[in-house]
Every structure is written in structure tokens, then in C-alpha cells.
Design a protein around this nucleic acid. Structure first.
Length: 539
RNA sequence: GGCGACGUGCCCGAGUGGUUAAGGGGGCUGAUUGCAAAUCAGUUUUUCAGCGGUUCGAAUCCGCUCGUCGCCUCCA
């Protein structure tokens, strides 16, 4: 949706309201989405701690919330999406000592890596990427406020949040203030209660530190998010997102800090995405009482400690769109099982779309008298508002089908952003269009019915509109394996062979024709003899 | 130990009380094709971990059992 199709916001468009329901972790049920200050919507997502390269699990949240923002915008809201960067914490400090370079340099490198990965996956809806180290004044004054109001206490240069003072503590994660945070950590001796958590940690002489009213130190993890979200989105904002693993203690603590400091609820809707898990290597029998193999024992949440990594490599071999599609196939609250084969399968199913787009382009390129001569799929216009995109099928059978599909797609997304169900509608639509092309012989080139071509173009436009809401099919797919430049040359060479094969087949020399095809197949190039001509793809 | 999630047909995955259980992948069959591929059609699919209960009716609600996983320490 980057190409702003200059949608003049019409008055009747903005007055129509979608009915979007979202699952709120706080209430544990789906609620009607009603922003606090419509049409404004504020979303805050907990981003990464940038101490190492990102892995695929880090992409789940950003892809989902990028999609959520796209959908809410499409539904008429004016959305601000914030993803923070934690660029100061113990791991970063340790790494900096180990490598003998400043913490900021590591943070800088890893942030660049993170952003590059996001870009590859089509995540481009982020409005603010606040860094903790850029918000020290806000963090410090936040802690001062809490101390002044009696929710925090300082001990020897450390400052802790007094959990007992917050009657709402534990509501989000359904935990009592007792028996949390283990034994209280290193600073247990200083805490009034083991559940109390650090707002400010005093630094040792050789550690990086910031000056504060409590002496040199650095902020606790949770307070960073409270301070930054407040700075950008205010006392109370609409949506706070993050992985399920952050619900406790991170989000519970953020909620306590912000709620107590501003005497207002921090967030209206808490959204938590499911975590990614490594798939089992072998099929586990279930009733077997044998010892679990090391592989099975390792199956679990994808994390760095379990060896996940190399996202940039994965993107290079799989393409960012494949990965985005793979993530969006599953509902955001479900666990996503990751495995090379499963990712590969998602990629295979994506090919159906790409082949259709090629087919579409070839048909429209031959048509001369439509309203959109030579219309390429990736150049089709796309509506930025769901109500503008509505249309009257006017009795046309294909358009009636596509109109119904569009309604189904919107209903799925309205129901807690069910992107998996929405994608299935896209598959259905592609089948409808292929059927239409076959039934009206649009691909054979023999003077296709103009009205049928028009219906095809209109329908394809709807598919492009819906897909772009998911951040899919925005631009032609990158070739897996990267390194283009040569791709154009390869294309020419393959077409040369296609022409030679065509000549051979025209004189019924099938042996030569098949030899060309077979040898190309061996090289990983598949020829597709369609009615509209022969094309090729990597296999 | 405390809190929580999940178990859907060969595989991946939608679906939370009521038309034939979405969609994708794979297998098979047919149409089409010189043969393939692609496309389309059909099939694999009365079945939702197991047992019991509620109900006119359950994959969906309740109970128990079995299994998997997460959080309670840093984690998206």
C-alpha cells in the first residue's frame, strides 16, 4: 500500500464503522474493538533486545502487528505503530565487555540487522522505533513520579517497584503477588517483597551508567517500555502487543508501573501472539515409554539457546514473502510450528498465486481494447479503505463470486484478525479466476470476450486489494537465491531454448523438444506449456 | 508445586452448539495435452486424542484419563 492511491477521504466513508472483534488477554475474551480516541489508534509492540542477530521467531510479532495496522488502516483508522528497541541490558553489557567495543556499537549493528530482516518480510508500517537509551530523562522522571506517589522505594542506589501497593497487580497474568519472580534475584536482600522488581539498577564502576537522583545506574527492563509508550502514545492507549512469553513478568510489570503512575489503565486491549516452536524431528508415537531422544527434548520454543538463527540466510534461500506468508497462514494466537519442510510447503502453495499473476499478465498484454490494456497484476490499483473497495457485481457471475469472497475475507479479518481463514479465501478466488479463464478461453488468445476480460481484471484488482492488506503480493517476488542482474540474462537464454524447442515441436520433432525440456528440468528450470505460450519457473 | 495453552482427516492448518468439517501440501482418478507441467473436476474425508456426561443436536460445553508445550530467571 505504499503507492498512495490518493484516496480522498469521503465523508460517507469515514462515517461507516467496521465491527472488528479482538481477543483481549486481560478479559480473556473477544471484545468489540472501540478505540479510545477514534479514528486514532495507538499500538505498542515490545521489540527485541539487540544483542545478537534476529531469528525467525523474532519476526512473528512484527509481521502480525504490521498486518494488524494495515487492516485497521484499511478499516478507516489512523494508526500509530510503535516498536521499541531495547539497547541497554545485562546481555548487551556482557557482550560489550567480551568484544571490547562499546555497547552502543553492538546495539547499532544488531538493530540494523533486525530492520533489514523486517524490510525483507514487508514490515514497513512502523511509525516509531524508540530506543531506550534515547529516553533516559523520561525513564528517570517516570521513576521519580512513582517514588513520589509511594509506589517505589530506593535502596542503596537501586529503586524497586512495591508490588503490594498495586491492588490490580496480577490481573493480566492471573498470578498472586506472592511466589513470583522466584527468589527475588540478586537483589533479593534489598526488596521488601520477592515480587518487587527493579526500576533502576545501580551500576558498578566499570559498567555503563547514567546519572540519576539515586546515583549512577541503568533502567530496569520493564520501565523502559512504560516510559517510551507513555512518551509516544500517552497515559492510556489502545493496543499493547507482544509474545505470550512476555505476559509475565514484563507486561504485568509495565501495567503496574504505568497504571499506578498515571492513575489510569495503561492499555485497553492486550494482544499476545503465540510462540514459534521447532517441529519434532520424528513422529512421536504417543504411548511409547521409551526415553525421549535429544532431538525431541530439544523440540520447544524457538530461541537462540536452542540454536535458532541465521535469519538472513533463511530469507536468502526462502524469500521474505514466503516467510511472511508462512507466518500469516496460522492464526496469530496459535503456536506456529517451524520446520524447513513446512516452510517449503508454504512456498509451494504460494507458487499458485505467482503462476496466476503470470497468466493474468499474459492475457491482459494481448488484449487491446479493454480499459486497461497491458495491465500487469502488480500495477493494479489498490484501495486503501475497505468501504471504497466495495463494488456492485451487477449480476456478473464471476464478480458475484468475488464479491462474496471479499465479504468472507473481511469477516475473517474482523474476527480477531483471522489471517489464515482470510488466506483460504484468496486461494478460493484464484480458483474462481482460473476457472473463468478456462471457461471463456481467455488464454487461447482467439479474440476473447471483452466483457469477460473486464471481469477478470476487476476480480484480480480485488485480489490485489485484499492481499495488500496482508502485506502480500505488493511487488513481484524476489527470486530465491538472490543475486539478480543475471536473472534477466538467464531469462533471455531460457527463452531462446523455448523458441528452439517450439520450432522442433512444430516439425513434430518431439525427441529434440523433450530433450531440451528434460535437460532444463535437470538444471532446475521447469517449462510450462500453457495455452498462451510457454513460460518457465525455477523448480 | 503454582498459572496457562494445546491435541482436527496421510501432513500443515481454519473452525467454539445446528446446511456436505474451510483452505493448502501430498497421493490417486478424470478432462485438457503429442507426452509432461500448469489449469479445471473428482477422490483420499462422517471424522475432530480416549472415555463418560449435558443437549433434540457437540470437533465445539462439562468431567476424567492420556499426550504435548509455555510461563513462574533473560526471551518476540
Amino acid at each position: 500500500m505504499s503507492t498512495a492511491a490518493a484516496t480522498a477521504t469521503e465523508s460517507d466513508t469515514t462515517s461507516r464503522k467496521p465491527e472488528i472483534r479482538i481477543y483481549n488477554t486481560l478479559s480473556k475474551r473477544k471484545e468489540l474493538f472501540e478505540p479510545l480516541r477514534p479514528p486514532q489508534v495507538g499500538i505498542y509492540l515490545c521489540g527485541p533486545t539487540v544483542y545478537a542477530e534476529s531469528h525467525i521467531g523474532h519476526m512473528v510479532g512484527p509481521v502480525i502487528f504490521d498486518t494488524i495496522k494495515r487492516y485497521l488502516r484499511y478499516s478507516g483508522y489512523d494508526v500509530t505503530l510503535v516498536i521499541n528497541i531495547t539497547d541497554v541490558d545485562d546481555k548487551l553489557i556482557a557482550k560489550s565487555h567480551q568484544r571490547g567495543i562499546p555497547m552502543s556499537q553492538i546495539a547499532c549493528e544488531m538493530t540494523a540487522d533486525y530492520l533489514a530482516n523486517l524490510k525483507e518480510l514487508g514490515v514497513n508500517q512502523i511509525d516509531y522505533l524508540p530506543r531506550a537509551t534515547d529516553h533516559m530523562p523520561q525513564i528517570i522522571s517516570f521513576i521519580e513520579d512513582l517514588e513520589k506517589k509511594g509506589f517505589a522505594y530506593a535502596v542503596d542506589g537501586d529503586v524497586f517497584f512495591d508490588v503490594a501497593r498495586d491492588p490490580n497487580y496480577g490481573q493480566l497474568s492471573n498470578r498472586t503477588p506472592d511466589a513470583q519472580q522466584g527468589e527475588g534475584g540478586e537483589a533479593a536482600g534489598k526488596k521488601r517483597s520477592p515480587g518487587d522488581f527493579a526500576l533502576w539498577k545501580s551500576s558498578k564502576a566499570d559498567q555503563i551508567s547514567w546519572d540519576s537522583p539515586w546515583g549512577p545506574g541503568r533502567p530496569g527492563w520493564h520501565i523502559e517500555c512504560s516510559a517510551m509508550s507513555h512518551q509516544i502514545l500517552g497515559d492510556t492507549f489502545d493496543i499493547h502487543g507482544g509474545g505470550l512469553d512476555l505476559m509475565f513478568p514484563h507486561h504485568e510489570n509495565e501495567r503496574a508501573q504505568s497504571g499506578c503512575c498515571h492513575d489510569a489503565p495503561m492499555v485497553k486491549y492486550w494482544l499476545h501472539n503465540g510462540l514459534m516452536r521447532a517441529g519434532e524431528k520424528g513422529k512421536v508415537g504417543g504411548k511409547s515409554d521409551r526415553e525421549p531422544s535429544p532431538d525431541e527434548a530439544a523440540a520447544g520454543k524457538i530461541s537462540r539457546s536452542k540454536g535458532a538463527g541465521g535469519l538472513a540466510d533463511l530469507i536468502r534461500t526462502q524469500t521474505g514473502e514466503r516467510i511472511r506468508f508462512f507466518l500469516l497462514r496460522t492464526h496469530y494466537r496459535s503456536t506456529i510450528i517451524y520446520g524447513e519442510e513446512i516452510l517449503e510447503e508454504a512456498g509451494t502453495s504460494l507458487e499458485t498465486f505467482y503462476r496466476f499473476f503470470d497468466r493474468f499478465n499474459e492475457i491482459t498484454s494481448k488484449v487491446e481494447t479493454t480499459d486497461h490494456p497491458g495491465q500487469l497484476f502488480y500495477d493494479l490499483p489498490t484501495h486503501t479503505n475497505r468501504f471504497d473497495g466495495d463494488f456492485d457485481p451487477a449480476g456478473d457471475p464471476l464478480l458475484t463470486e468475488i464479491h462474496a469472497a471479499r465479504e468472507k475475507f473481511l469477516a475473517a479479518m474482523d474476527d480477531d484478525f483471522n489471517s489464515g481463514a482470510a488466506i483460504s479465501v484468496l486461494f478460493d478466488s484464484i480458483r474462481s479466476l482460473n476457472r473463468h479463464i478456462d471457461a471463456h478461453s481467455l488464454a487461447t488468445g482467439a479474440d476473447p470476450e471483452q466483457s469477460e476480460v473486464k471481469s477478470l481484471i476487476k476480480s484480480a484488482t480485488v485480489i490485489r486489494e485484499l492481499a495488500s492488506v496482508l502485506g502480500l503480493f505488493i511487488k513481484p517476488p524476489a527470486t530465491a537465491g538472490g543475486d539478480d542482474q543475471d536473472t534477466a540474462m538467464l531469462d533471455q537464454v531460457v527463452h531462446l531454448l523455448i523458441d528452439l524447442r517450439k520450432e522442433a515441436r512444430e516439425r513434430k520433432d518431439y525427441a529434440t523438444g523433450d530433450a531440451i525440456r528434460d535437460r532444463l528440468t535437470d538444471l532446475g528450470i521447469a517449462l510450462l506449456d500453457k495455452k498462451e505460450g510457454t513460460s518457465w519457473e525455477r523448480s
